[in-house]
């Protein structure tokens, strides 16, 4: 996925927030430009992820030693005892040896016992104590094939891009996710932030991690969930407390209402988009698809399937299947004119 290096296009209510938003946009753009898409479990950014990486290296070390020993023995025997030319007689028949067999039963037993203890310690370390009461609570809901994020304490609902405060001098907030599903099983996996946990319909799973450094963290759904499992991507954006505050204040606002795009808004409200999408401040209150109130605050469309820019938005409305074949957003066979009007309208939803 390309990360847009573009500065998010934004307009605002009044000049104060406009200035603030531009400032935020510049910061964000700088931050994004620096970020590489790294999904490696070897570059942990949180405590749980680091502790898993350490455990991984430890177990890899043990497994590596065993591997070398066993492969070494196999190759040694294969080479040393291969039949030489002219050898005919049967070698001595050795039926077994109780001491040796006991030894190679007890040694592995001890090894796995140690491993077991290490694992128990690590499980409690990664998931042991519950998150502190002042954690940022986010309800993450998996949908076929996009993510919904609800911040119950902040009163916001967004999609696909999870904004969180980052770690700062003297303060490391905890992010506590409550994982749910609207349909089938999904799995929340952002390798740099920690292991995965499943979203299971009918249940709420919990996972939590300490805020990482400022930056963007990539991941995607890890449990096969149907046609577009591959394009159910995740982006977690960690920002300074100040940026995060600006972001959620903006998110809480109702949608922009610009007179210049009245025509587009009317088309949108007249079509069945409103059965599936919410735009707060309008009559659109559907919950089947992502909330579009602040669509332009997102970097990507359709859970990371493409960059969120004018061109892709147009293509998405004209033919969602061209971008994400099989997605639950239907092709409404809009006229070219309708598409343009609606895109113009959606582009004002900062």
């Amino acid at each position: 996925m390309l990360l847009p290096r573009v500065e998010p296009k934004r307009s605002a209510h009044g000049w104060t927030s406009r200035v603030a938003l531009v400032g935020w946009g510049v910061l964000l753009a700088g931050n994004v430009a620096a970020a590489a898409e790294d999904l490696s479990v070897f570059s942990p950014a949180t405590r749980p992820a680091s502790s898993i990486r350490d455990l991984f290296f430890l177990v890899l070390g043990i497994a590596g030693v065993i591997l070398l020993i066993v492969e070494g023995l196999i190759f040694y025997c294969a080479y040393r005892f291969r039949q030489r030319r002219g050898e005919k007689s049967e070698p001595p028949q050795i039926y077994g040896s109780t001491p040796i067999e006991v030894a190679w039963t007890v040694a592995p037993l001890l090894t796995v016992f140690v491993l077991f203890l290490v694992v128990v310690r690590s499980v409690t370390e990664v998931r042991g104590e519950s998150p502190p009461a002042d954690s940022l609570r986010v309800i993450a809901i998996g949908h076929q094939w996009w993510w919904e994020f609800v911040y119950p304490d902040l009163g916001i609902r967004t999609a696909n891009e999870l904004y969180i405060p980052c770690r700062e001098e003297g303060s490391t907030p905890t992010i506590a996710l409550e994982l749910q599903s609207a349909d089938v099983i999904h799995s929340f996996w952002v390798p740099r932030l920690g292991g995965k946990t499943d979203h299971i319909p009918g249940r709420t799973n919990r996972m939590w991690f300490d805020a990482p450094e400022r930056g963007a963290y990539h991941g995607q759904c890890a449990e096969y969930c149907g046609t577009q499992h591959a394009n159910m991507k995740l982006l977690v954006v960690a920002e300074s407390a100040e940026e995060f505050r600006l972001w959620h204040e903006q998110e809480r606002r109702e949608a922009n209402h610009e007179a210049a795009v009245d025509a587009g808004r009317e088309r949108f409200l007249a079509l069945n988009c409103i059965n599936c999408h919410t735009i707060r401040g309008t009559a659109a209150a559907g919950t089947v698809g992502p909330d579009l109130t602040h669509l332009m605050a997102r970097r990507t469309l359709a859970a990371g399937a493409c960059v969120n820019d004018h061109e892709h938005l147009t293509q998405w409305l004209a033919d969602p299947d061209a971008i994400k074949p099989g997605s639950e957003m239907p092709n409404l066979h809009l006229s070219r004119q309708d598409v343009d009007l609606i895109v113009a309208y959606l582009s004002t939803l900062h």
């Binding site: 502790s51 898993i52 066993v70 196999i74 491993l115 920690g194 292991g195």
Partner: peptide
Amino acid sequence: LAMFVMGGLTGIMLAAVPIDWQVSDS
């Protein structure tokens, strides 16, 4: 013998729960 050892050892790694949280379904 030579290949199965590999599979067995990665199996041990996967049995270490936190490692599994990272690499299961990958």
